[in-house]
Design a protein around this nucleic acid. Structure first.
Lengths: 373, 373
DNA sequence: TGTGGAATTGAATCTGGAT
DNA sequence: GATCCAGATTCAATTCCAC
């Protein structure tokens, strides 16, 4: 382990996991010594009873003691304190990433602003495989929010624009990132075979963050280190890290994990490869976008049947309601039907298949993806 | 314009644009009279003199000298005031949507929580055609954030789950919505041919919001009405609206726009409903009507368990007696069980779920209800 | 060893009406 | 307000297991 010429404090405990409360530990480190902070603080979930899936299995909820706060005021005090300690540690051109859900992220963002951090972007992690909403009472909670902020308005923060553009097939990176949640072999297990940490983040997320906003040799601090995803990716990418973790069980898992990591593991670079396939277009989008109006009549192939569009993107015909596919199948007494090619709308006396509209939407998406700059 | 019997205040100024400051106007309206609020508040922190404290005290100009902290405080005062006025207007089961970007949305969300609104989801509007980032210094700002919250934790808010699922081709709607920004003929122009409003929202966004969280006849308030997207979509979808707008120029454009809008057919506004709203059928009715006889045997899913029907509509199995749900739950050692789909009876050697019998009874009730007297 | 179907699982503020 | 209880409710990815 070499001391860094860039670092003001040569005594910086690099590439280690420090035990203890993150505020105390941060305050013990030299000011202005860290390039980037990644922080995944407790979300302050306020869960009531148990939640069961439709098959009656029980959801393994986040009920850990470290996520319990008695009020927003207590949570805000905690947030104020660690953000203040974090700011002191940042170099003048340093930056921070925080991640949260709607339970806590508004409080994080507001306090960042209050303390004079300068918000650069909010970034949405769109989960490709989120947990569904089992009770049908809300929207599927399919994303988390990250906030990227520099130490203050004058900071000359690091942003590797071209590297991110390259990661995104040559198109500039947007503020919404589609990445899968952490599952499979990447998900660390404890000795019982249960998940070692309830909220382990995927390496692909940290990979993108570190590629975007650090350079090799930078010092990355994670005050809520958990099972050490930040440290693992930092090590792979040739960045130095400092982890802080209060729970001994997490530290143990993280130490073992870090020992297994190899620097510049080429496979890490392939994690975020983009998949190109024809995107699914729900018929409802055609209605929402006003390409067809609720009440408008659609006609079947051969003009034998008619059905009307409803505001929720279903069709209603004679005694039949349902999707474009279901109503088509019912009329034809067929087990299935491709509604996109079956149904037509009239324009200037001509019958036009609704698939034209889907192609228009796809063309827009394609044009957007291919737009230069 | 008809007065609504549902509304507590028959003097509610429905389907109009009210001129004036939104806080003053909201405070002049009767409490508990609005089903849904959609709010797109200004997020300009440069405060071009258009924000003032609730007590109307003059705010020191911030355009001459950037003072971040005082400007946040002023913005927070403004947010507090209008959210408080909004909460007073909501019916007990009412809800609110607010939209913002990273400049203001964290302050909005935190204040919603502070005031006791109950956050239901944060929703990401993922723009399919955002403005690119020209300088290459940050990520393309390709989304805005909406927050959906009920008036308080106990509110029985409206959520048309099945309709949204239909809009999304049969898969439950997620918290990230991909919709294009408002362009083309939908984008309103002023007499110079310039865009009439800098942040006109697409009708598709309001369509989804109103389908999701209102029913026909509901009262929707927009305190920052602008060019009236909320009113236009509300009118199309058979909802009543109240708009508040301070700027005469926007009111003029909105009035003209609303005059052009036509309501959709009633049949087109019918949406896919929830099973919860179907009438409850006691299992005892199945026995009373002779569809199953006392003593008849029912078999569980997978044919593993058996129970006998008793004359009072309960079941008796091995050491278990009770409702179809209770006996099913006991056999499965599950916290609950839907007996209607769990139990099957035999006819001609085939296993048929007893839910078929419930559907027959419901169909009879339907036919009976529809029969003219 | 391959393949197809069943089982498992993930940061969750996840019911509602009658009594 | 607390309690009881009918009965409605899931998507994608991975792993496990039977054959």
């Amino acid at each position: 382990m070499t001391s860094k010429t860039k670092a003001p404090g040569a005594d910086l405990p690099l590439n280690q996991i420090l035990a203890g409360d993150c505020i105390d530990v941060m305050n013990s480190l030299p000011a202005g010594s860290v390039d980037l902070i990644f922080a995944d603080p407790p979300y302050n979930l306020q869960l009531k009873g148990d939640l069961h899936r439709p098959d009656n299995s029980k959801v393994d909820a986040v009920d850990d003691h470290w996520d319990q706060f008695s009020s927003f005021a207590v949570y805000d005090d905690f947030t104020k304190a660690w953000l203040k300690a974090a700011k002191r540690l940042l170099k003048p051109n340093g930056a921070i990433w925080v991640i949260g859900s709607y339970h806590n992220v508004f409080r994080l963002g507001a306090e960042l602003q209050n303390q004079g951090y300068w918000l650069l972007n909010d970034v949405v992690w769109r989960k490709s495989n989120p947990m569904p909403n089992f009770k049908g009472k809300r929207l599927t909670n399919a994303h988390e929010t990250l906030i990227w902020a520099s130490r203050d308005e004058s900071a000359k923060y690091t942003f590797n624009y071209e590297a991110l553009k390259a990661l995104n097939d040559g198109i500039q990176m947007r503020s919404d990132w589609v990445l899968p949640i952490c599952t499979g072999h990447e998900r660390l297990k404890d000795s019982n075979g249960d998940k070692a940490h309830p909220t382990q983040k995927p390496e692909s997320l940290l990979h993108r963050i570190l590629i975007a906003t650090t350079n090799p040799g930078d010092v990355v601090l994670d005050p809520f280190f958990g099972t050490g995803t930040t440290g693992a990716v930092a090590k792979m990418l040739g960045r130095d890290f400092i982890g802080i973790e209060r729970e001994e069980a997490y530290r143990t898992v993280a130490e073992a994990r870090l020992a297994r990591v190899r620097k510049f593991d080429a496979s890490a670079l392939e994690i975020t490869g983009s998949k190109r396939s024809e995107p699914r277009v729900p018929f409802g989008q055609v209605v929402e976008r006003g390409m067809l109006r609720p009440g408008e009549e659609l006609y079947s192939v051969g003009n034998r049947y008619m059905a009307k569009v409803r505001a929720d993107g279903t069709l209603v015909g004679n005694d039949v309601k349902g999707s474009i596919h279901q109503v088509g199948a019912a009329y034809e007494r067929a087990p299935s039907c491709n509604g996109w090619t079956y149904w037509h709308f009239k324009r200037d006396g001509k019958m036009i298949p609704i698939d034209i509209l889907r192609q228009q939407i796809r063309a827009e998406m394609e044009a957007d993806h291919a737009r230069p700059n």
